[in-house]
Design a protein around this nucleic acid. Sequence first.
DNA 1: TATTGACCTAAAGTCAGGTTTAGGTGTTAC
DNA 2: GTAACACCTAAACCTGACTTTAGGTCAATA
Lengths: 145, 145
Amino acid sequence: MYSIGEVSEMFNIPISTLRYYDKEGLLINLEKDKSGIRKFNESNLEAIRVIECLKKSGMQIKDIKEFMSWVSEGNKTITKRKNMFLKQKENIEAKIKELQKALNMINYKCWYYTQAEKDGNEKRMKNITLKEMPKEIREIWKNVH
Amino acid sequence: MYSIGEVSEMFNIPISTLRYYDKEGLLINLEKDKSGIRKFNESNLEAIRVIECLKKSGMQIKDIKEFMSWVSEGNKTITKRKNMFLKQKENIEAKIKELQKALNMINYKCWYYTQAEKDGNEKRMKNITLKEMPKEIREIWKNVH
DNA sequence: TATTGACCTAAAGTCAGGTTTAGGTGTTAC
DNA sequence: GTAACACCTAAACCTGACTTTAGGTCAATA
């Protein structure tokens, strides 16, 4: 059993955010003692891990809440929950691909500015043609333009 | 030269968003004709590509604006701009790593729910031990917990 | 006993990143 | 010549995800 302060430290999430998640219904089965103080158990910690993961995958609080409500409905929602994770898997994979494309652009720009820095100006680089680029850079450029 | 409507279609960005970027100073050197209509040239399109890329890497509008102002200051900011891209490269790489960690969690959950679905309930899975997991799943689980 | 520290709630406030609205201009299509 | 379109501005509005504030409880320490 952990206090909200301990959980905040463990996950590096502000206390106010944990309370907000609780208020929004993301922390189902979170117990409170007689004076209203939250007591986090292992399954609440697992819920927080899941919340962080679903947030990273781009899911909104209200949809995470819906997922959590399925959890508390038990066996009849197992398939729903599985499908939800399958979909989030696709979402994350798409996000990773997007980021890799952005990384291509950034790598091109890093090369561009490294060259421009050597030249002391952007004259040459502004008008550079595909043929003048090293092979790796050419491939990156094509991916991005 | 492209109209705002054409650019909106090309990039799949709402017209209102393009106008907002212009208002916020992200589209420097964007020309307008005598009656105030925006005319996008190739270098404006490149700016939009860069904006999209920097946004994906997590940069805020106000910082993208600052970058764009460096662009218009010319040669004396080349090193600044290069360093900015080097930093964003790190940011994106960190983001990709985070997403890969989230993907691990999701893959574990996909396996978990596939098993639970077969069983018709979560009893077995709720208490599963490391030893009972297939090797690949065990590795994933360790990465996540 | 009084003060400190960790917790609590409800409600208001904040911030980024747009989007919508209201009212207007200029050019082409019937 | 009038209607339909694509564009314009300024300003208000919206949404999600928190964060801050104000006022209060409770247990342990000085």
